[in-house]
Structure formats: C-alpha cells, structure tokens
C-alpha cells in the first residue's frame, strides 16, 4: 500500500482573473521507505504539494491519501492529531528553543502530546544517538553547528515515530559539506529506518541523494528518475533536466 497517494490533486490560489493554479490534477504514488525529492522551477507547485500531502493546507479539488487515510474527509481535530503523529516536519531553519538542550528540544513534541517527561527524554536520546549526536545531548543550540542543529531538528521531527518526514529546503541554510551530510542522513532515514522522506529542494546536489526525483512544472509531474541500486543520481543530469524545464 502507498504511504502517500495523490489523485487529481489541484490547488488554486485566489479567484477569477488573479487565480493561480499551483497544482493541476497531479497524481503521485509514494511507497513506504522511499526517499523522494521534488524539484522544479520556482512556482511549479513543489512546496504546495508538500503541504497538501502533510494536511497543512486543503486542496481545491482531488484527494490525498496518507497512510491509508483520506485526508479530505477528515475533521480539523482528527487532521491535527493525524499530522502530529504521522507526519514529521523539517524546515529550512532549525528553530530550536534556545534555552533547552538538544534532548529537551527533541522531547518537547512528545511532552506536548502528553508523554511523561522521563519517557519522552529517553526516546529523544535514542533518536539523537541514531543520528550521531550522542555526545551532544546536553548541548544548547548555540553550542551546536548549523548542521548539528538541523540534525537535532530532524530528530525532533522523528521522535513521535511518524512514518512520513516532510522536508522543505532542509539544506537551504547550510554550507555545502553540512548540506551533503544532511542529505546522506535523510537517505539513511529512509533506507535503514524505513521512514518515507518527501523533500523539496532546488539544489541538484542534494536531490541527487534521493531514491527518486520527481520534476514538477506548472503543477504537473513532467518527468521523474529512479535509482535501482544504492548509487546516486548524476548531478549533472539532474541539472540538465532542470535547465530544460525552466
């Protein structure tokens, strides 16, 4: 069963003469454990897709099925609960809470959701260890590099054990080495821990780490490339495809 399925997904912003179609009857199927990068020129609808899939916004028409559940029929309450438990979000900036340590930052979503502090911190430590920050647990954000802060933010997104991780330009504010490390980590999250990762990026280098790259233009999937083995996409080929599209 797909973890994400969109059917005829359409999003129009505005009305009448000023209406802008961000997504235009888009169909996409993502299997559990896939690492999918979405690319395309500015305004192609890639971020809109991410937010509709995460139940963060409503489509104008069409349907999103997430982990077997049709989001269009859900009440706001159920949708909010579903999102908190089934979807992890990673942003461009890390937005960690400055006065909390790495463990406390990662544990916070669980505590807000009613988990006991000791259990929440135990689970936070386990994710921080998995992503290679076992020696940074008690550090505050200002004692961590940008790449390390983004790792903490990824652990925070994973701590509620969501099957789907949505990442919107997750490397947009990192130097190229830290950005590569984050891309490798996202790949590991999908391959080793079978979480599905859906990432929007404008950077071909980062997209090259994904198992599948979906190219959007004018709200439609116009091309896609898949990797059959553990290799990487040719960055140059990705670049060329993007150039042809824009």
């Amino acid at each position: 069963m797909s973890i994400v399925k969109t059917e005829q997904l359409t999003k129009v912003y505005g009305e009448g003469a000023t209406a802008v179609t961000a997504l235009n009857h888009l169909n996409l199927d993502i299997q559990p454990g896939e690492f999918v990068a979405v690319m395309g020129p500015s305004g192609c609808g890639k971020s809109t897709l991410l937010h509709l899939v995460g139940g963060l916004d409503q489509p104008t028409s069409g349907r999103v099925t997430l982990d077997g559940q049709d989001l269009s029929g859900m009440k706001d309450d159920d949708l909010a609960r579903m999102r908190r438990r089934r979807v992890g979000l990673v942003f461009q900036f890390f937005n960690l809470i400055p006065v909390l340590t790495a463990v406390e930052n990662v544990a916070l979503p669980l505590i807000l959701d009613g988990t006991k502090q000791s259990e929440a911190e135990q689970r936070a430590e386990s994710w921080l260890t998995r992503i290679g920050l076992s020696d940074r647990m008690a550090h505050r954000p200002d004692q961590l590099s940008g790449g390390q802060q983004q790792r903490v933010a990824i652990a925070r997104a994973l701590v509620a054990e969501p099957p789907l991780l949505l990442a919107d330009e997750p490397t947009g504010n990192l130097d190229s080495r830290a950005a590569d490390e984050i891309a490798v980590l996202l790949r590991q999250i999908s391959e080793e821990w079978q979480r599905t990762v859906l990432m929007v990026t404008h950077d071909p280098r980062i997209a090259a780490h994904a198992g599948r790259i979906v190219f959007l233009k004018d709200g439609l999937v116009v091309d896609e490339t898949r990797l059959s083995s553990n290799g990487r996409h040719e960055e140059q080929q990705v670049r060329q495809k993007l150039e042809v599209m824009s």
Partner: peptide, 19 residues
Amino acid sequence: RRVIYVQRAGLYQQLHAIT
C-alpha cells in the same frame, strides 16, 4: 482549530513566496 488552520495555510503561502 479552523482559525489555526487558516493561519497556517497563510503562513505557508508567505513562506513559499519568500523562499
């Protein structure tokens, strides 16, 4: 919840535009 939902959608739209 609807008020939060609408606010979030609006913030995301702004975020797209600025990104």
